[in-house]
Amino acid sequence: MDDSIAYRPAGIATRDQSHLLFARTMAFVAGTAALFALGAYLGRDLGGGAGIIAFVAAFAALIGMQFASRRSRELTVGLLAAFGLFIGLAVAPTLSYYAGQDPQALWQSGGATALFIAGFGAAGYATRRDLSALARYAFWALVALIIFGLVLVFVSIPNGALVYAVLGLVIFAALTMINFQRLRRNTDLASAPLIAASIFLDILNVFLFFLQIIGGRSNDR
């Protein structure tokens, strides 16, 4: 007897597709993280200028994924891989700095990030409440945070960096929940690379915010 998803009851087929999407998305997240680590290792001696170029390339790959997803799954996955590698190169100078000055901050930030993503990801995946309205608020809050970050470049605000990082964690707590709910409710397997990119960005930003908080606290001692 043919036991494929196509011949199962609709509810079972939907659950199977959802579970398969979750597994495939997490595999893409893991692969992207591995390429990020490779990029961070290869770029450990890069200067700030090269890091900016790598960041632009990573952003271009991310934008390219939006267009490629409608045409070629293979190209979308390839761009996701390029994004992971380039963003690793872009962040490498920052990671290299902390590795030399305060390596403990890297491990502490990594552990805090794992707990943060696991907690809010599980909450988003399990909740039955529709978070789509929250997504709009989170988007505009992120835009406001970016503007605040630009202001901090030119204006000295007491504890501004700490406030920026804490607000960033609040916003990405919401975005993490939203993306994991999106993962549970979606059954389109072709969307796996795009959702993986969103979740990886959540993880990366949370890690950098924790690094800013923990590393800054260590430097104040």
Score class of each variant (00 low, 15 high):
F172V: 12
G49E: 11
G64T: 13
S96V: 10
L211P: 06
G64I: 14
W107G: 02
G78T: 08
R128G: 15
L169D: 07
L183A: 08
G43R: 01
L79C: 08
L42C: 11
L201A: 08
I178M: 12
M65F: 01
S132G: 02
L95P: 00
H19Y: 05
M26R: 05
Y97C: 04
Y7T: 12
G121K: 12
V163G: 00
L38H: 04
Q17H: 12
I199Q: 00
L183E: 10
A114D: 00
A190M: 08
Q212L: 13
G64D: 05
L62Y: 15
G47V: 10
A114R: 01
G119K: 04
L20W: 08
I157V: 15
G110Y: 09
H19A: 12
S69T: 04
E74N: 13
R24A: 13
D130T: 11
A112F: 08
G49N: 15
D45P: 04
A123Y: 02
F210S: 11
W107L: 15
I147K: 12
L152W: 04
I157F: 01
G160L: 11
T94K: 15
L204Y: 04
A122W: 11
G124P: 10
A37P: 05
L189C: 03
F116M: 13
A10E: 14
Y7C: 00
A54V: 08
A40G: 06
W140T: 12
A81W: 00
Y97P: 11
G160E: 09
L145F: 00
Q101H: 11
D3R: 11
L115D: 01
D45Q: 13
A82C: 15
D202I: 10
A60C: 09
I146R: 00
A54Y: 02
L167R: 05
G215R: 14
E74F: 10
A165K: 10
L201G: 09
L152F: 08
N159M: 03
A126D: 02
T76G: 01
T32W: 05
D3Q: 06
V163N: 11
R73A: 14
T76Q: 02
S198G: 02
M177R: 13
G121I: 14
L150R: 13
G47N: 14
T187M: 00
A34Y: 03
F172N: 12
S4I: 10
G51L: 01
L150M: 10
A190D: 07
I53T: 13
V206H: 05
R44G: 06
L134C: 05
L20F: 06
S156T: 15
F22P: 01
F172E: 08
F83C: 05
G48C: 03
T127L: 01
I214W: 10
N219M: 13
P193D: 11
L204N: 11
A190V: 07
A82N: 10
A58P: 10
W140Y: 15
A197K: 06
W107A: 12
V77G: 00
P158C: 05
N159D: 07
A40S: 07
A190H: 02
D45W: 09
G48A: 12
L152G: 04
S72T: 15
D2W: 04
F148W: 02
A37N: 09
N159C: 03
A50G: 09
